[in-house]
Amino acid sequence: MSEEPLWNIFINASLVNNFVLAYFLGICPFLGVSGKLGTATKMGGAVMFVMLISSMCAFGIHLLLEAIGAPFLQLISYIVVIASTVQLVEMFLKKMSPALFKALGIFLPLITTNCAILGLALFQTNKGYNFLECLVYALGAGTGFTLALILIAGFREQLEYADVPKVIKGTVLTLIIAGILSLSFMGFSGLGN
């Protein structure tokens, strides 16, 4: 695994094994905030940021837990770290950049229960990446998440004015679009490996 070039890890995480469209991680915010292009972009940015920080923390914690021989604490410590990272980011932004803080609003605290973040921490541990690979993996996953969110939001903004049967409107329509997107992302499967 450690022989894998960094570029490959990035392409793998963002396109080939897109977190939303291939692993189904982070579906809740995906369905929830993908109605408008603006909010989708901001949400993607916030998620990528938290992913990077919590990926670094998870790397350290994994080493620590290995050292003291308590792997069963992995899940609990990861979730605590993610929750506190989100809290820290929130406090930091409030102090340093109130404008950005206001723009992100409710999405910031909601990131704690985004399974893409915890999934990323667990996957990177399973794959045994080193520190640099972890960072690239987090960056790729965040890019993939943002890309999927922006794509869906674009479609949904267009479909707002389309004349579709009432029974199919809303979640059903979004799911069908997501399915078609997922099919088209399968076209990338030859790229990474």
């Binding site: 291939a22 189904f24 059903v172 799911l175 069908i176 399915g179 997922s182 099919l183 399968m186």
Partner: peptide, 11 residues
């Protein structure tokens, strides 16, 4: 059984 099928079935 591919990811896309999951979206379609749920829809």
């Amino acid at each position: 059984i591919l990811p896309a099928g999951g979206f379609f079935t749920l829809a």
